[in-house]
């Protein structure tokens, strides 16, 4: 019945961040507040990349990462929809390679829709959006093969990439393709930075759709994200100031033991766990006395008879 294990502070902070984002979206919908976005070089290069592919008459390849269907993949497909819009106008051939069946379903529908709205549905080939493999390195081998055989002129690698990122980037480079890449996997970003022409770093990836479409909702959301980051920065600043002062100028007189405050025999220097920030961020465990609740018991189900250690596959078990 309590927030012991989560801590009120965590819930408050989450609600605050959610609030920033939703309020800013509402404001932007009414076209209030500023709608500025700083320049993101990688995104300005999209038209250049497609233009080159059109000139050379060679395809544009797009890979939405190898993760499952989540916002990262949706964002990738949102950007690809924008790419395909231009490609559809100039009749530039496209290749979109998926590693997850659900992502494939979304991509197939979205891209077809783009061609439909541009009024050139006859230019859309169902097989230009294809599922290659859901096994990481089979996918890598397959896409590397496609990149080299089709001699692509531009390559977009956006999404969740892991070790295979360099296989794509270097294969495309060998073909002399312009590459625009971005990954939310921070461990892969340096490889993209080294090998690709333009890279979306960090949450430039999430800012991309707002940047490309200038939709008020997206820009509002972006503004909310920025306020959340300021909130984080403010927390850190508040944290280092209070932590520094507390640990320099005050002494610890007691400490929490199993959820109870116990006075110390002798004052001592405050450690990282003795600050009040620590109490906000690390909620105390439930005191022994309150952690046991006796409730009336229901009858056992037939599958719970016997040892009962094997939890049933659905419901019931913990």
């Amino acid at each position: 019945m309590q927030y012991y294990d989560k801590g009120w502070f965590g819930v408050l902070a989450t609600v605050l961040v959610v609030g920033f984002i939703l309020v800013m979206i509402q404001r932007a919908k009414r076209h209030e507040g500023n709608l500025f976005i700083r320049r993101i070089a990688g995104l300005n290069a999209i038209d250049e990349a497609i233009g080159r592919a059109t000139e050379m008459g060679r395809p544009v390849v797009m890979v939405p990462g190898i993760g499952g269907l989540d916002a990262i993949a949706v964002q990738a497909i949102n950007i690809f929809a924008k790419v395909c819009q231009t490609a559809a106008r100039f009749a530039t051939p496209i290749k979109l390679c998926c590693a997850d069946p659900a992502v494939y379903a979304v991509a197939q529908e979205t891209i077809r829709d783009v061609y439909q709205r541009e009024g050139v549905i006859e230019r859309f080939e169902t097989d230009s959006v294809q599922f290659v493999s859901d096994r990481q390195f089979a996918f890598a081998a397959g896409v590397a093969g496609i990149i080299q055989r089709e001699k692509v002129a531009a390559a977009f690698f956006l999404g969740a990439f892991f070790a295979e990122s360099l296989i794509f980037a270097e294969s495309a480079n060998a073909m002399g393709a312009i590459q625009i890449a971005g990954s939310t996997q921070t461990t892969q970003t340096p490889f993209f930075v080294a090998a690709c022409d333009y890279v979306l770093i960090g949450d430039e990836y999430y800012a991309a759709s707002a940047y490309l479409t200038r939709e008020p909702i997206l820009i509002g959301s972006l503004l909310g994200q920025d306020y959340s980051k300021i909130f984080f920065a403010a927390l850190i600043t508040l944290g280092f100031i209070t932590v520094s002062c507390e640990r320099s100028f005050t002494k610890a007189t007691g400490e929490f033991k199993e959820g109870k405050w116990v006075a110390l025999e002798k004052e001592r220097t405050k450690g990282p766990g003795d600050t009040f920030m620590s109490m906000w961020f690390n909620p105390q465990s439930i005191p022994e006395a309150e952690s046991k609740v006796e409730r009336p018991q229901r009858e056992k189900n037939w599958w719970e008879e016997g040892g009962g250690d094997a939890a049933p596959a659905a419901g019931g078990g913990e």
């Binding site: 961040v17 959610v18 916002a71 990836y205 999430y206 959301s221 909310g224 994200q225 959340s228 980051k229």
Partner: peptide, 8 residues
């Protein structure tokens, strides 16, 4: 940034 972006 990425975490907040994902939440948004």
């Amino acid at each position: 940034g990425i975490g907040i972006g994902a939440l948004a």
